[in-house]
Design a protein around this nucleic acid. Sequence first.
DNA 1: ACACGTTACGGCAACCGTAAGGATT
DNA 2: AATCCTTACGGTTGCCGTAACGTGT
Lengths: 291, 291
Amino acid sequence: MLNLTHVRAFLAVVEEGSFHGAADQLGVSQSTVSHGLKRLEDMLASDLVIRHRDGCVPSHKGEIFLPFARSLVALSERAVARLQSDRIRIGASSNVGIYLLQPHLRRLADTAGVQPDLVIAANPAIATKLENREIDMAFLEWWDGRPGFEARRWITDRLLIIVAPDHPWARRNEIDLEMLLQQPLLAGEKGTGTGTILKEALGTAASRLLVSRNLGSTEAVKRAVAAGMGVSIVMEGAVRDEIASGRLYSVSVAGLRLEKTLWCVVPHDLITVSPTLETMRHLLEPQALSS
Amino acid sequence: MLNLTHVRAFLAVVEEGSFHGAADQLGVSQSTVSHGLKRLEDMLASDLVIRHRDGCVPSHKGEIFLPFARSLVALSERAVARLQSDRIRIGASSNVGIYLLQPHLRRLADTAGVQPDLVIAANPAIATKLENREIDMAFLEWWDGRPGFEARRWITDRLLIIVAPDHPWARRNEIDLEMLLQQPLLAGEKGTGTGTILKEALGTAASRLLVSRNLGSTEAVKRAVAAGMGVSIVMEGAVRDEIASGRLYSVSVAGLRLEKTLWCVVPHDLITVSPTLETMRHLLEPQALSS
DNA sequence: ACACGTTACGGCAACCGTAAGGATT
DNA sequence: AATCCTTACGGTTGCCGTAACGTGT
């Protein structure tokens, strides 16, 4: 079996580029690092670092081993951390975590007294964290149905076409599809499935959509649209306040209804763990929110 | 730092349900298992298994730790295995691995003398294996653009509508969309993106598609179609032989061209490792195949 | 009495730090 | 000579197996 202390020494040597630096980083003597690395190399029957006069670099095999080493150390640290704090950790894609999930978490705290940690990142990154058990459950805009997980429908939110108050469309309730196709669209975060929904809804016409640029986040998109830089399509929950206050206007396309189903995903091996199950049960409750 | 030998002992106890069984499984004495588990529990400051009269079960914290333990042991074993064999490991979704990749692997063996291991599984499962570094690169029908990976277009294959030789459509070159919409479709493996492509291409009409049943694999779909159980849509490469021999016929829908782009995906931290890079370079070569 | 896990004890290997030794520039 | 890694040596710790010891049935 590998010794994780030695693996850690290997990582430190690669990061620091020297045995001395690695020893300092780890707070051990330099010979300990040398020893540990040698043990590891013996165990693996492979030279892992090339000792050079001025600095060390991973060898060929070292480069192959490097990602494993990182994952092993990170995983073990996550494991102990996860056991120390018994807080549930919930992941959510940016839009969901920032705009949609908050009132539900509030309700969870009020009714069940549970206050989970919330991890917000891009949709695919959250899927990765779920796979690594960095989080216990995820609320996502898009899920690929990979095995080992249970995905349940959470809520369905409408997608709105938003424009600035001084945009010509702001005075209309409805536009037709052709107008939308001729207007450059500002895109937000990638990998959230909005593009797929548009393609499904528009069919062949989707290829004529003009995506002028990617802004990376919904908040940036909202500011850009408000500043008159174009129009965009976002989840209703993300612009409720702006529309209520008149900072943004929404318009519909005749005969087009866009909506996105959001998912709650839990690994199968955590679904039996009672606090996870309990939390999921609370958050999935169809009970209406006061907001 | 965690001791992987102890983690392994924990896993064995949980699997076997007893310390004795675990000791047998691991080929050590029973007290060693007891000791190791105690060390682990001390390290984690958590009781991991509940010692019962007739068998042991993981405690609450044990259940939380369990997936970490499995991942740690599996990852460490993969790491040593990966260093022992210097064979590249290529993953591919079923269709790609079975039908499309083979001639390219042949060419790779002939020109570069490289014979990689091939791992075939469902598309999302391959994505997971890639994330875990179980494979070095993947050829996929669908990729979600998650961070940390480089995805390059590999080839584009047409999607064909296939029917049995005695099907009424077999005598026609072309049908119209309405006919397709009224015909039940046999679906193959899930998560391969074919559904998404159909939705994009057909737009709102996609909702009228009749998917009669899921058969799980393309090979099953081909047999079912040949037996007259319905029609289906598959990648051209998967039915080239059957069409050439007349066991299946393909028809087109007027004005509809369906195709699927396949991807070659490599983790960023492996792309610099020379044999991986070399292999990818060879397989991505646009050079025409003799077949 | 039996089955099972725990604890005590001794041997052995692993680990660590100090310090001396080599190699390269 | 200076720098960096390796190796030798001794003390300490951790790990393992044998065997004795609780504890429930």
